[in-house]
Write a protein that binds this DNA or RNA. Structure first.
Lengths: 143, 143
DNA sequence: ACTTGACCTGTGTTCATGACACAGGTTTAT
DNA sequence: ATAAACCTGTGTCATGAACACAGGTCAAGT
């Protein structure tokens, strides 16, 4: 099985398979006649596992730790339970960041509907952006 | 004004100031005796503008376009109105991604509370992750 | 046997946005 | 003068792949 075959079978791009190979999580054998990498059952199982873990928000490095724990025959489950808590916190944060950014953006768009375009001056580059920031700061300060 | 002074005054790190200098948005003069960069009023205004725009979700490249439009004396406002719509779409997407990931994560954590740790086998690396993925796929398929 | 063209491969590079490392210069205190 | 503390610019690193590209392979046609 070569890189494109396994990629198609699992439903990812060849570049993704190459990436996980490059970082050492997949260890295909090498066809000596042409140097092509040969992926087998073990790699298929590993790749599926990697994708499942990615779906759950584990980082590529997390997965490396999980895999190497398992390789040593130890249960990776305790580590997995710890790591997902950390990743959940990060996800909450990126969720909150997205919410707040979205609020700022929609608020700006609405405000800008009432405002004209204006050429830049020595003081202002884009009055929409600069004035909105003042407004937002004022709101934030409770003014 | 040197890099740390302007950075402290505006409330960012010196590395951030260096970054915007490197990409050419800030053009400090150079002290010929020691090679240090000298930031002045113009750079302070520019830096503030850059940060305001970043707060609104514009990418660094967006800001480059906005700045170069303004430099040519043209109003950047129409561009700004277009760009923020595009960035808003991306923000919505990252918001949705965060929500869905969070759901998967919390659902996994809850499920895992009922499950024991287990050592890896030839078939399984981490039964928590692999079994959760089956479950999730089944739910998704309406089973 | 040979050639053409289509497809495939591995390796190196790029993306975004700063943070970090580091060798050397500068300022302050002694 | 000297030592310590601090500052500077430049170069590299980080994520998780996607992309570029030179060359290899393989089937079809001649």
């Amino acid at each position: 099985m070569r890189v494109n075959q396994i990629a198609n079978e699992i439903g990812v791009t060849a570049d993704t398979v190459r990436f996980y190979t490059r970082v050492g999580y997949l260890n295909p054998s090498k066809n000596p006649t042409n140097g092509y990498k040969e992926y087998g059952d073990k790699e298929r199982r590993l790749l599926r596992f990697i994708l499942s873990a990615r779906q759950l928000g584990f980082s590529v490095e997390d997965i490396g730790q999980i895999l190497s724990t398992a390789e040593r025959g130890r249960s990776p489950c305790p580590l997995v339970r710890v790591l997902i808590q950390q990743r959940l916190i990060e996800t909450q944060k990126s969720f909150q960041d997205s919410v707040q950014l979205r609020e700022r953006m929609t608020s700006a768009i609405e405000t800008w509907n009432q405002k004209p375009d204006r050429a830049p001056t020595g003081e202002m580059i884009c009055h929409l952006i600069e004035e909105f920031d003042h407004t937002a700061a004022a709101v934030y300060n409770g003014a």
